[in-house]
Nucleic acid binder design. Sequence first.
DNA 1: TTGTAAGCGTTATCAT
DNA 2: ATGATAACGCTTACAA
Lengths: 369, 369
Amino acid sequence: MPISDVAKKSGVSMTTVSLVLNNAPRAKYIAESTKEVVRQVAKELNYQPNIYARTLRGNRTETIGAIVFDITDPYCAHILRGIENETRATSFQYLLSDAQNESDRFRRNLDILMLRRVEGLVLVANSLSMDLAVLESIHNPQIPIVVIGRQLPESTIASTVSINNEYGGYMALQHLYELGHRRIVYLRGPKTIVDSVLRWEGIEEFAKKMDLKIPRQTIVDLPTPPINPSVGFYATKALLKRGVKFTALLAFDDMTALGAVRALTEEGIEVPRECSVIGFDDIDAASYYNPPLTTVRQPMVHMGEEGARILLTGIQAVRDRMPILGTQRFIEPELVVRNSTAALGSAAKKEKKNDRGIYLTPQIQQAVV
Amino acid sequence: MPISDVAKKSGVSMTTVSLVLNNAPRAKYIAESTKEVVRQVAKELNYQPNIYARTLRGNRTETIGAIVFDITDPYCAHILRGIENETRATSFQYLLSDAQNESDRFRRNLDILMLRRVEGLVLVANSLSMDLAVLESIHNPQIPIVVIGRQLPESTIASTVSINNEYGGYMALQHLYELGHRRIVYLRGPKTIVDSVLRWEGIEEFAKKMDLKIPRQTIVDLPTPPINPSVGFYATKALLKRGVKFTALLAFDDMTALGAVRALTEEGIEVPRECSVIGFDDIDAASYYNPPLTTVRQPMVHMGEEGARILLTGIQAVRDRMPILGTQRFIEPELVVRNSTAALGSAAKKEKKNDRGIYLTPQIQQAVV
DNA sequence: TTGTAAGCGTTATCAT
DNA sequence: ATGATAACGCTTACAA
């Protein structure tokens, strides 16, 4: 039903209908009685404004584009959840694009989103498969961009939301150290990812502070993304074959850590009794793994929310013809201690039961008879 | 740049430009030289048609709506991957909506998508939080709908893509049976989910065929969704407390199975040596769990592709003013044997190494030094 | 307090 | 072989 139908049936002009239904400022001067009638009729006819006409007229698509590097990666999913949360209260909708870890898909998807005239762009770009340089080529520089999960070297093309990776790395090693571990082994992330470099810096910082040596042969460098458990699995096997002795393993991320735990178990090394393992991210699987994984948590939903908030602010700025100011937002990570780490020599101690592992919901406990 | 700019600079009319750029049938009658000029100019000016104007004019949004019950659930993510795959080759884009397992969110999201005038709807409705009855209330009955992951009782409002749940349940029990297990315990899905009922029927069918008894106290009924590992965890604990003796556990799905394995491990029962566990779905986590989980695989990406294909066909039908015919598509599940199941009494046999667990990529093996 | 009309960028119809 | 024009549904400047 076009607006003209509503106007006709209400006995007023299209202008009035539009004013009323949009609660435009000028609607103040419209008689309450008129408004009532219009609203009533609109409801009766189930009038739905045509978004496309409105967009054509007003040049506002109320749409933001989201590109994730891999929809299948829980990291992305949770950030999307955050974006959705923040976006929900507004009239904005987001168009999702899955780059599937392929850089040319990323490029193409970017074009498609531009064609749909998104008013802003949020990139979950934790992975290197997104070559952010192409952002420069966007023809409309008036589009605010927020990159989540990746610190950008310089440039001011985009705002960023990222975790304090250095502190995260620092905390991870600190945790192992405080449990008494000294023979520690590292699955280091690829140098091509900024995150790995920063996390490693944090690790080195703590090591230096405690005068802990990090022999070269205790480090395994992970290949370029995609990173998945099998990477951690084979890296750990390689380490074992190398003959290095260790009581704890610090992994680049949870995926890697899960693979590591599996490899250790398969080789008959019990986690955490004989070897502690710590990950990074706190993906869902970490909490229900066997054993539940100790990790450094990235509050992903929160990061998504934060990113969306920054983006919406940017869009508002553009609409108001204000300059878009790039923000660099850092989120603090959080140590989550579960059952994959234990104090050195606590062999006798029975594994604690579920105090920090799989989460207990009262309803669930009740519901299951 | 509007099309008029291109027309002006090319020295032809807007009509001609439109015809050329869209490869319209009538473009045949346009001189090749003219076409060349137009295309050249369009490229120079970086002309991008305004989708909103086009939609306003032609009433085609080239957009489909996708509602998932939980973006965070790997099941949904993989189906989305399939939808994306199928959709990519077309000019269609999909609008994603995350119901977050809440029925009123589902309702609201549905409205939003209708407002955006999607030409079709695909629902990943494996969970009960989506009350499909509201579909009836869609004001435009001309919109084809495909439901993925849930069989619909009757009604012809939507096409469906679902797995052969009965056969899946049948296979799962058969697998355990063939390994020699007779004392089997069941974590049965909620009766409110059609899938659970059907899977259970398959289980009963096999049991009857083999004259296998299913005592009431070997069954634990799971509460209503969301289903997550903690449900399986507590269900298994409850079972153990009940004092039932068993050598194998058949779980409703992978999430439940993972929780079950964890519970067993925590109670000192080794999987698979002392107890075999089988799941359903084959989510990613199943392959890298500790131990890797034997399961009945739902080819989720494939299901997403199939669903999108059916939907696009339906949309084409609507455009051609043909009747939309509802399709019920069944996909065959597949048994994936990993390390969480073993032959009864094979206690002596060492757990096999990685032959069917974490997948080995040659590159990865090489890459990791 | 309400109405008229222009214009957003396309494409389909009808002309030439 | 190409062009002029109307129409899609909405919002807003201007008029009354």
